[in-house]
Simulated scan of single mutants.
Amino acid sequence: MALPRSVDHDERRAQIADALARVAARDGLHAVSMRSVAAEAGVSLRLVQYYFTSKQQLLVGALRRLEEQSNERWRERLSALDAPTPRDVLDAFLLEAIPTDGPSYAFYRVSSAFAALAMTNPALAAEPLAGGVGRLRSSIHEAFLEADRLGQVAPGVDLGVETDSLIALCNGLSTAVVIGHHTPERAVEVARYHLDRSFSSGQL
């Protein structure tokens, strides 16, 4: 008699989290429920409740999963280059941060919905999301610091302010893309224009 196949719990959680992301990206967060996610994932409601005891936990799990996938896509963009420069790192961030395809669109839809809920939900606002925001800022800031060490940053640029303003600009442009005020191409063009002004002429 064949033994039953052991359950990969991480795989199950990922399957359910991915289903939430698809529902949220396609129908909006208001359409997300434990039941709708179960139907999308093709599993029972009881199974979803086994891994995630509340919609809040489910949302956090999905956002962590999307963050991991986003970081992996960022790394893949850079791995395609022989010797990525600091500017390449920042440009890859722009292409991932702004919704330019299905995965980045889903990430933005879920993360912005999370932020909206956190405004009125103290428990959600306190969720650190595994330090994702801090790690993102650290990566961007380190790219600016390296560019500065190489003499590529324009004189007078405040690297901390530049880091925060680039992240904020991408967030705003992402909203404009999702609601149809900008195309992804135009949003990337605007972000690159802003980034160009931080670098010295001829050092892009």
Rank of each mutant, 00 (worst) to 15 (best):
R87Q: 10
A113F: 10
R186K: 15
R75W: 09
L159E: 02
L195I: 01
Y193Q: 12
G151N: 12
V188A: 09
F114K: 07
R186Q: 14
T183D: 04
L117K: 02
T183L: 03
R192I: 06
R109N: 01
F114W: 13
H194F: 13
S198K: 09
D101Q: 09
C170H: 03
Y105E: 12
G102V: 12
G102R: 12
G102L: 10
T163E: 04
C170L: 04
F114N: 04
E76R: 13
A154E: 11
R109D: 01
L124H: 00
S198D: 02
G61W: 09
E72L: 14
R135H: 12
G180A: 01
V161A: 13
D82G: 06
Y108W: 15
P99D: 02
V153I: 15
G160F: 04
S138P: 06
L169C: 06
D158E: 11
P128I: 00
G131L: 04
Q69R: 14
A176M: 13
L66A: 05
E68G: 07
P122W: 00
P103T: 09
L66R: 05
P122G: 05
D88M: 06
S198A: 10
A115D: 10
G180Q: 05
F93M: 01
S165P: 08
S198Q: 07
S174M: 05
L78E: 04
R109A: 08
L169A: 07
V161G: 15
D91Q: 13
P122Y: 00
A62H: 02
S201P: 08
A130W: 07
S70G: 13
N121G: 02
L166K: 01
D101M: 12
D82I: 04
D196A: 08
V110P: 00
S200G: 15
L159A: 03
A176E: 10
A154H: 08
E162W: 10
A130S: 12
L81G: 02
A80M: 01
G160A: 04
R149K: 10
R186Y: 14
E142I: 07
G102Q: 14
Y108H: 12
A113T: 05
P122S: 05
P99K: 01
D158S: 09
G61T: 08
D148E: 11
E185K: 14
R149T: 04
A115S: 11
G180P: 01
R73C: 02
V133W: 14
V190P: 05
A154Q: 11
T163V: 03
R87H: 09
W74M: 03
F114R: 12
P184Y: 06
T85Q: 05
E142R: 14
A80Q: 08
P184I: 06
N171W: 12
F107T: 08
S138H: 14
V190T: 11
A143D: 01
T183G: 04
A187V: 06
A143L: 01
D91R: 13
A168I: 06
I98S: 06
C170T: 09
V133T: 15
E67V: 14
D91F: 04
H181R: 14
Q203N: 14
V89L: 15
A176G: 07
T175H: 14
L95Y: 10
Q203Y: 14
I98F: 06
V157A: 03
E127W: 00
V178H: 05
A143E: 00
N71I: 08
A168P: 08
S200R: 15
W74V: 03
G156T: 05
R65G: 03
